[in-house]
């Protein structure tokens, strides 16, 4: 269970341009389910994802993962939790250009101290599963949008995280690629992984496998369904 308790997040606090992106959120997210955050731009969806994914600390309030308060941990411990518990699929995918797909996929595993062979075996298995086996040696910039997204998903799964966080994962994809993405999400859910996404796309938040949709506006939760 991921629990948020009175979470608030300010940027540039104490400065003239202080901005409160999250203005008090209490939330419980069950593990093993697919949750979608939706809302207009600037509503705080992405900031909330960064707080849950240990990419940033809340200004106030607490974030608990599996009963452990992770909101006040030093960077080193946050990094370890982020590396082992979360996999990220970014909106622009952010694959590193000039290096191979395989090198991109193993990236989160490099600082874990796992053997290179073990990491590449796992990466090859993930790429095969995502029908990208023949792209392992290709450079990341040579991929199509759909391929780049699947590589980003493989990268997110290399450390076998409990939770996959995806920020607007289908923003740059057409409907057929969005369907393909949803099929992958369904498979992740079937494996027991928690998937947390932000999206404007009705194809995503109305999808059958989505368990919960949270609507945000001005840094607050305004509704949730079901």
């Amino acid at each position: 269970m991921i629990v948020l308790d009175g979470v608030r997040k300010a940027f540039n606090q104490g400065k003239p341009n202080e901005f409160w992106a999250i203005r008090g959120i209490d939330l419980e997210i069950e593990l093993g389910r697919v949750t979608v955050l939706q809302g207009p731009s600037g509503s705080g969806k992405t900031t909330l994802l960064t707080l849950i994914g240990c990419l940033a600390r809340p200004t106030a309030g607490r974030v608990r993962l599996g009963g452990r308060d992770i909101s006040g941990l030093p960077e080193r411990f946050l990094t370890e939790i982020r590396r082992n518990s979360f996999g990220f699929v970014f909106q622009q995918f952010h694959l590193i250009k000039g290096v191979s797909v395989l090198d991109n996929v193993v990236l989160p595993g490099l600082p874990t101290g796992r053997r290179r062979r073990e990491l590449t075996d796992r990466a090859h298995a993930l790429l095969s599963r995502l029908t990208l086996a023949d792209k392992a040696a290709s450079n990341a910039e040579w991929l199509s949008g759909g391929e780049a997204q699947r590589v980003a998903i493989a990268r997110a799964l290399i450390n076998e995280p409990e939770v996959v966080i995806a920020d607007e994962p289908t923003a740059n994809l057409d409907s057929s690629l969005t369907e393909a993405f949803l099929a992958i999400v369904a498979a992740l859910k079937a494996e027991g992984r928690t998937v947390l996404m932000t999206s404007h796309d009705p194809l995503i938040y109305r999808a059958e496998m989505v368990d919960r949709v949270l609507s945000m506006r001005d840094g607050r939760l305004v509704s949730q369904a079901p």
Partner: peptide, 19 residues
């Protein structure tokens, strides 16, 4: 683990140097 980690980081560094 530390040695493996450094080897992994070094491998990545060398492949990125070419870029």
């Amino acid at each position: 683990d530390w040695v493996e980690k450094q080897r992994n980081i070094l491998d990545f560094t060398l492949s990125s140097l070419r870029r």
